[in-house]
């Protein structure tokens, strides 16, 4: 009756004799215009979605289209009067025989594979550890927050001091343990491993937190059942915990692999790609080519190839994630 009390309905309302609401309705009275929402829900829903989608289109699709177009041109924006000149796919031809580019792909793949495997294994172990309800675990958890909250550029600077051959604490610790000193970032053989070490230091804690959350979300009844069945710790881990964590491990792999491909900041401050090009990954080479040498067209071609590779790998992982989730009936 809130909208437009027609005469009929008004008499209905005031017809009650027991007081209370029907009696009240007569006092409400007064014709008010029929109430109606101005826009349909569907229109509003679309309007709500448009700004975000538009921004994502502008900030991703447009730059990528731009990169694809530029990748077919020769263009040096540092020259005042330069215009992009179409060069017939020459950039791509050059790319495929460019040892520097092929080398960065090799380095990127080594970096991603080694870092992600280490992060996953250490993360699983730490995740198991921090789900234990023991005294002192709170301190461990807080300590684990530190590395990954740090800006990767800052982490790079910090580890540069730790790795310092002369006066860095790492070599001092090795000396104390009676082990030979290492060259770390200064050595062509150890530089990549050192960068991976920093990446792992930063990224193991988040992996461990995710694993811990996954373990806590497994029904305790499953662990009880496993205990009643007489399973050992390792049997429980192998046959209960690990299978139940499959979707979570898939999420970790997806996110970590994608992030590891994108790593740029640490390399910038830790090694600047060196020594020589021993720690130069694709992102770094693109930056160098585009922003330092201003070969924008060539850098764009690298970007496009890199994007295609990353895109294909992501799709594989998204597929795997779908399968893992449907296998254990996890949410989403």
């Amino acid at each position: 009756m809130t909208g437009s009390p027609s005469p009929a309905s008004e008499s209905d309302l005031s017809g009650g004799e027991s007081g209370g609401i029907p009696a009240l309705a007569a006092r409400v009275g007064g014709p008010t215009p029929p109430w109606r929402p101005r826009l349909s829900d569907r229109t509003i829903a679309v309007l709500m979605l448009v700004p975000a989608i538009a921004l994502l289109l502008v900030t991703t699709v447009y730059p990528i289209a731009n990169a694809i177009i530029l990748s077919f041109h020769q263009y040096n924006p540092s020259l005042p009067l330069a215009k992009p000149v179409f060069n017939n796919g020459e950039n791509y031809v050059r790319l495929l025989s460019d040892p520097a580019f092929l080398n960065t792909i090799r380095i990127t793949v080594i970096f991603v594979v080694v870092a992600v495997i280490l992060e996953l294994l250490l993360g699983l172990g730490l995740g198991l550890l921090i789900t234990a309800q023991r005294r002192g675990i709170g301190i461990v958890r807080v300590a684990m927050l530190l590395p990954f909250m740090m800006a990767p550029v800052a982490a790079g600077v910090l580890w540069r001091t730790l790795f310092n051959v002369q006066w860095g604490p790492l070599n001092d610790i090795l000396r104390t343990l009676g082990l030979p000193e290492q060259q770390f970032l200064a050595s062509p053989d150890q530089a990549l491993a050192s960068v991976i070490m920093v990446e792992v230091w930063q990224q193991v804690p988040p992996v461990a937190f995710i694993v811990a959350a996954g373990i806590l979300s497994i029904s305790p009844d499953l662990f009880k059942a496993s205990a009643v069945d007489g399973a050992s710790f390792w049997q429980t881990f192998r046959h209960v915990t690990l299978p139940m964590l499959r979707p979570i491990i898939a999420i970790i792999l997806l996110l970590r692999v994608m992030d590891a491909f994108k790593v740029y900041d640490i390399i910038q401050t830790l090694t600047e790609g060196g020594p020589a090009t021993q720690t130069e990954n694709v992102s770094y080479l693109i930056w160098k080519t585009g922003m330092r040498f201003f070969q924008t067209g060539y850098a764009s071609a690298m970007s496009v190839v890199f994007l295609v590779i990353v895109f294909l790998i992501s799709l594989v992982f998204i597929r795997a994630l779908d399968r893992a989730q449907s296998a254990t009936g996890a949410e989403r």
Binding site: L56, T60, P63, F261, V282, I286, W287, G290, A299, F311
Partner: peptide, 22 residues
């Protein structure tokens, strides 16, 4: 949702240089 996820997967360097031009 997958599209939104994929936009996050793009290596920022790929977008950064065209972004600079824009």
């Amino acid at each position: 949702l997958v599209w939104i996820l994929l936009t996050r997967i793009f290596p920022p360097i790929v977008i950064a240089i065209p972004f600079f031009t824009i």
